[in-house]
Design a protein around this nucleic acid. Structure first.
Lengths: 346, 346
DNA sequence: AATTGGCACTCAAGAGACGCGAGTGCCAGA
DNA sequence: TCTGGCACTCGCGTCTCTTGAGTGCCAATT
């Protein structure tokens, strides 16, 4: 249906529209791009593109604007990723190189990405399904409180306080620590969850104090493991949305809400289908089930030796896909390298 | 200068303006409020109020709008706090009663407050200046990594990984744990910081492995203590700003940025001066140094047995101070009660 | 001295009228 | 298949006019 030149016209429309924020007409195209044909010819192509629902005219007589479908075709077939400048690359590497632990690394990553693109940046914590529990620590805090600490070989540490029915003796704690360690250490987070569930299934022998103690602690361990399996996000750049308000017909409320909720974004990102490069995009009305019809999400996989996840971008549908996709890819690339390189240190 | 009735007129203007979002004129006042006088009389009062810079007319000929100063007088002298409804009170208590540890309690508090007021809610973590270090734990994670955990008697726990120059033996860790515990446990966070600094001052004896180890760990302990002293915020309801956009001349960008930065808000809240009830407000241009000229912040102290901090609200200058101050006060009250009641459990 | 009714004045906001110009669709001819 | 030409559409900015809410001031009243 649509000719090769027709696609080039689509590309020109997307680029110019992203650039100028204004509907683009046939005349503007022949002026800004070196098609060797007249405006009338472009107009014919545009009519076809409109038939295919790739562009649309806001008013009977003004330029055209890409539709969701138009952006989709652009991203899938027309966008050549604009590589980052040398300065940008070295800025990223030096910024990430200074990172300390995992939390710090991801915080830096997300800041770098929002800086680079001017959009809201999102990093998902590495999935811990494949991570193994490497340490369990119990600390009696005095009174009825026992601090439970879990560490995985991916470097994630979490702690939580368990309120136990009786104040445990030092021996109780030591014994319990050995038991829980035996149960979990070396196992994956998923396996560990099952172990804990099984251990809890019997329930405490009534009246046996040490059982009640173990029960309370194991319950907290279970909650903690559950939280491990739950994905978390780090985000930055929410304020940039205020500047782009006009791009969201009316209100940025749904965006801010999604950012605050996190759950929506997690679901959205997990449902995105990546291409062979690990890149993926979800554009405009494709986000309808998540209430983000005016927005686009770009994402890329990243990987560490013990598990990966996604890093991405949330912004208006009318965004610079070429640059932003390149930025996401680059950042994911560096992040992967950091996580593989010296993995032992995280 | 301004008569008693003049102040009542100011109150009427503030109330009506907050209500209707529109400049209020003399006629509207005599209609909605039962002053026993004519519109002309009200007009005379309004002229005086304008002389005092308490109200201002956006255009030569339309109703008046309160100035920052007008809101200030309203808050200080005219606002009677509108008590919460019984339903609201019981909603708060039951919601907070279900809370688990400190993190959970504060998260619930902030959600309750944003729910109650429709504004951005802020809770500052209890200050840890008065908190004492109650436990120190070191865990060798294998390789060059040592996990450092600090616990205070206020129930705050933090952990951090130290990268040490050599892989420590179990004995090294035990010995070091004893040393660090001796240095810190029972001391306040502030004192502990000094202890660590002093211990680091000498520097490691060159070539002595155990010294290098201790040095690395102590350095991390120092960082961690520093972070303890640094205040943190929990916030919720940022999305509500999108709905109130018109109230912020132009852009909510500065607000969103302050929310993301946190530091600004911390400074702002720490500089607010509370009245005898512990309540405080910072209105409009009073926030100028923080770039939040269009906004107001309300705050109240709350206290726990081991230290308190502030809970507050960020919103447009044109807000319902009566209800919102009451909500902040009530939430602070319940939070205090939760923290004092069963303090041992957090 | 305080209050009031009356009155002239101001000015934002909305409604129409109008022209401009960018952009379109279509068609006949190259 | 492309192109130049042409009639047509319609959003947008400008201008004018009207309307009405609200003001300040003043002389009269209490």
């Amino acid at each position: 249906m649509v000719s090769e030149r027709g696609l080039q016209v689509l590309r020109a429309i997307v680029q110019d529209y992203v650039d100028t924020r204004e509907p683009v007409g046939s005349k503007a195209i022949v002026e800004r791009h070196a098609f060797g044909v007249s405006a009338a010819t472009i107009r014919n192509d545009m009519a076809l593109l409109e038939d295919e629902d790739l562009i649309v005219a806001p008013h009977t007589s003004s330029g055209r604007v890409p539709t969701d479908k138009g952006y989709r075709v652009f991203v899938d077939h027309l966008a050549e990723l604009r590589p980052l400048s040398g300065a940008q690359r070295s800025a990223i590497t030096s910024f990430l190189d200074e990172a300390g632990d995992l939390d710090d690394l991801l915080a830096r990553t997300v800041r770098a990405l929002t800086q680079l693109t001017g959009q809201v940046a999102i990093v998902q914590y590495p999935s811990f399904a494949r991570a193994n529990v490497s340490h369990v620590e119990l600390v009696a805090l005095g009174g009825p409180r026992v601090l439970v600490i879990l560490v995985t070989d991916t470097g994630r540490v979490s702690q939580r306080i368990s309120f136990v029915p009786v104040e445990p003796s030092e021996a109780d704690v030591t014994q319990l620590r050995a038991r829980v360690s035996g149960l979990l250490v070396g196992r994956s987070v998923a396996d560990s969850s099952q172990q804990v569930a099984a251990a809890l299934a019997d329930g405490p022998r009534p009246g046996v104090v040490v059982d009640a103690l173990a029960d309370a602690v194991l319950r907290v361990v279970g909650e903690e493991l559950e939280e491990f399996r739950q994905d978390r996000l780090v985000m930055a750049g929410a304020a940039t949305l205020a500047k782009r308000e006009q791009d969201f017909r009316g209100s940025i409320y749904p965006l801010l809400e999604a950012i605050e909720e996190q759950v929506t974004l997690l679901r959205l990102m997990s449902e995105m289908v990546a291409d062979e490069q690990g890149l993926s995009a979800s554009i405009g009305r494709e986000n309808e089930p998540f209430g983000l019809v005016e927005a686009s999400v770009l994402a890329s996989r990243y990987d560490g030796s013990t598990g990966g996840a996604r890093v991405g971008l949330l912004g208006p549908m009318r965004m610079d896909y070429s640059s932003n996709l390149a930025a996401v890819r680059a950042v994911a690339h560096y992040l992967t390298r950091m996580l593989e390189d010296d993995d032992s240190s995280r």
